[in-house]
Amino acid sequence: MSTAIETMVKFEVFRYQPDWDEPTYQVYDVPYREDWVVLDALNYIKDTIDGSLTYRWSCRMGVCGSCGAMVNGYPKLTCAAFLSEYLPGPIRVEPLVNFNVERDLVTDLEGFMEKLESVQPWIIREDGATDDLKSEYLQTPSQHAAYQQFSMCINCLLCYAACPVSSHSEEFIGPAALALAQRYNLDTRDEGVEQRRDVILKDEGIWECSFVGECSAVCPKHVDPAGAIQQAKMTGAIDYYRRLLMPWTVKS
């Protein structure tokens, strides 16, 4: 049995309940464990100090994308943010910025869901053949590699919290949804480029992006949404000039 005094870490957790006028920060003392992440600390608080603390989590291993929060002002998956990186504390945990807060660390995802759906992130076939489960669409490794990294997105929305454009434009479709649009546009099995074009080529699509690149910097799955948007801007610009200079070569 150890006689050493247990190291404690101070947590300042953002608290808000729907019937409160103002959000507040609540301070909790959590014992330090070398192998603990911020999510472990939140679970410790909920289990032993304050059962009313509300936050989303599921897998504990960077796959489900539900435990994102601002940790000391930086968007992180709380399951991947080791306490040891934040010593001696205090560690401030807040809901992801650029989203409305429903309760404590839980944000409203409805707006994102609409944006995600608007880019139709699924394989579209002109012949409607995706309904036919017997169809087979072959793809070479290099064709697969063209979009593979963009398909790693877990919709954790850290990129929206990091994005300066999302902070001033509610309509901006945003990094994850645009990266997923590009993921399907680059898929050789997909024929939906035309259907996605109207949404992607608006100001609120790719063109509001100011290429700060923080979306790619914070992504826990090493997706490069900034790169996806740049690729889409290039094809979008070519498309724009083609319509301007050779309108007879494009469908309306």
Binding site: R197, D198, L201, K202, D203, G205, W207, K233, G236, A237, Y240, Y241, S252
Partner: peptide, 11 residues
């Protein structure tokens, strides 16, 4: 197309 951006010129 409605809502088409003219940002490509600047970009």
């Amino acid at each position: 197309m409605r809502g088409r951006s003219h940002e490509p010129i600047f970009w």
